[in-house]
């Protein structure tokens, strides 16, 4: 979230967002602030707090390009980039309106079947940037992600990976097998910035819970463009700009 706020303060424009595989307040804020040209996602939601208000308004106004997807299609298309292959097949999806609205997806018969067996082929997704927050990194740019392995897939697939962390530690995260197994090696990491409490108002597992009051305030204010502007002024634009 710290990086999301920084993007808004910097007046980022024309971003194409890829949710892995769904997103909420981050995408909603970027859309509301006019930073986004298009979004690909399996879902955009504020969870228990209901729909994502600025996303919903932008969809209705036709203000952003939307590519509806399904969770495993996003994971799989990133895995294609991980392997450096142009596409990956995936079961299911046939007969959906998701497929009907995705001219970039193709259906072909399984070449190994004796006959028939149509299967969906997904083109590889190679993001320009993977962006996420993690508990810690070391001086060599190794980032501890625990069992959130989709972050590894994102980094493998993306051209560049930018990470914010709670803290930068002096230990070598690859030195001990116990931490190495949950570590994204610095080979895949382009930049790390320290941003304590950087996930707030969202939770960071084992570090802090979500700030539900803050999320509730957002969900309430962002229902209108004026309320959203008030939120931005209060919680994003008026902050000391470190990033």
């Amino acid at each position: 979230m710290a990086a999301t706020r920084a993007l808004i303060r910097r007046g980022a424009r024309d971003l194409r967002l890829l949710a892995v595989p769904q997103c909420g307040i981050q995408a909603d804020m970027l859309i509301g602030a006019g930073c986004v040209r298009g979004i690909e996602a399996a879902a955009v939601t504020m969870g228990e707090l209901g729909g994502a208000p600025r996303f919903n308004a932008a969809v209705k106004a036709g203000a952003i390009e939307i590519r509806d997807s399904t969770c495993p299609a996003i994971h799989t298309a990133l895995q294609a980039s991980e392997k450096g292959v142009p596409f990956m097949p995936l079961r299911g999806i046939l007969g959906t309106d998701i497929l009907a609205h995705r001219p970039d997806w193709k259906v072909q018969d399984n070449p190994f079947a004796e006959s028939g067996d149509p299967i969906v082929l997904l083109p590889a997704i190679r993001p320009d940037i993977a962006l996420f927050h993690a508990p810690r990194a070391d001086r060599a740019g190794n980032v501890w992600i625990g069992r959130r392995r989709e972050l590894v897939t994102m980094a493998h697939a993306a051209a560049r990976t930018l990470v914010t962390v709670e803290e930068i530690v002096e230990d070598d995260l690859l030195a001990d097998e116990a931490t190495a197994a949950g570590t994204l090696p610095g080979l895949y990491v382009s930049g790390v910035a320290e941003a304590p409490m950087g996930a707030l108002p969202l939770a960071l597992t084992e570090h802090y819970g979500a700030d539900t009051d803050h999320l509730g305030e957002y969900a309430r204010l962002a229902r209108s463009a004026e309320g959203f502007a008030e939120y931005l002024q209060r919680h994003v634009l008026a902050q000391d700009v470190a990033a």
Binding site: P21, K60, T70, C71, P72, L90, G92
Partner: peptide
């Protein structure tokens, strides 16, 4: 689709599962 009268979150993993 795509502008819709009411937009819900999205299909999640349903199209596959």
């Amino acid at each position: 689709y795509p502008t819709l009268d009411v937009r819900w979150p999205g299909s999640f993993g349903s199209a596959y599962l």
